[in-house]
Design a protein around this nucleic acid. Sequence first.
DNA 1: CCGGTACAATAGGCTCGTCG
DNA 2: CGACGAGCCTATTGTACCGG
Length: 306
Amino acid sequence: MGVKVTSNSQSVGADVNEIFFGYYLTNSWDDFKDSDKVQTELDERSNRLDDDEVKNQKERAKVMAKVTLEWMENNGYDGNIVKKWWPKQNSGMISQAIGYEIDLDKNPLDILVQTDKGKFLGLSAKSTKGSGKPPFKNPGLGTIELTLGLKLKHHYDDAVKEMLKEFPELPKINSERKIIFKSDTEFYEKNIQGSKFVQHVFEGIRDDMYDKLITLSQEELWDYVKDYWMDAGFLQPPYIIVTGRGTDGKYAADINDRDELSGENLTLQKIGCDKIRIFSKGEKLLDMRVKFESQHMATSIKFSGE
DNA sequence: CCGGTACAATAGGCTCGTCG
DNA sequence: CGACGAGCCTATTGTACCGG
């Protein structure tokens, strides 16, 4: 339920810019959601800044609105803007508007607009916040086995056998071992965590996955990553970054039309003993990490996308 | 050049629902 | 009940930048 409190003057200026930016998209307050409140917030913030700063933010906003409208016209968002939102990190407002949950920590939009054709577009005003990173899943071992058609569990079973050979006093049941590992931290850290058993499990599973993944075609690999490692509907609604700059009568703005997250030129690399890193066009896309749910050698194996 | 610090990345862990 | 799966959270580590 994130309503982030802003306090420093930098974000005050940014807020003023964002609101003016929204305003100039249609030269109107009427189509703002909670318009009165937005205007009140603008006044309150403007009063905390000196006049020059307000003027600069306002003038930049004008140029930003202009280039944004041009961009929209040329990039499939033609038509008129009929509704605008200034969520100020209030995810609820956006979720309500678009009809599905979104996380504004991931999608850095500052202003959301809807066209008369029903399309939503997020606008990030000279984005300082939000990573734009899509959310990842944390699949379990069974899911990975199923989706890749691999048998991986034996790596764990073998390692457990080895471990029990070395420490016959340990219980055979996972949950009982977990209790012991948790209470006897010293033993756990010395003999289990980071041990050859864990290493064996991680490496065995990771290497099998790697061997399988490199046999896939680019398309298959991308489908796999998209379908099983990224949350459905990632980075929706789409957004663009609009940067305004300049002072003293000279203002400019440009659009950073973020690359659509795409799986082009996918390459794979093993990292450490537990990870496969996937690059898209040479840039890190995600890490698939093998890990234990909690206590090593006593809880279930899962993965995490990062 | 240095330590400090604020933030990002990472590793590790909890909870809770489901299933056999 | 025991195991598993998946989302979420937190503690720790790494890093990039900043003022002195």
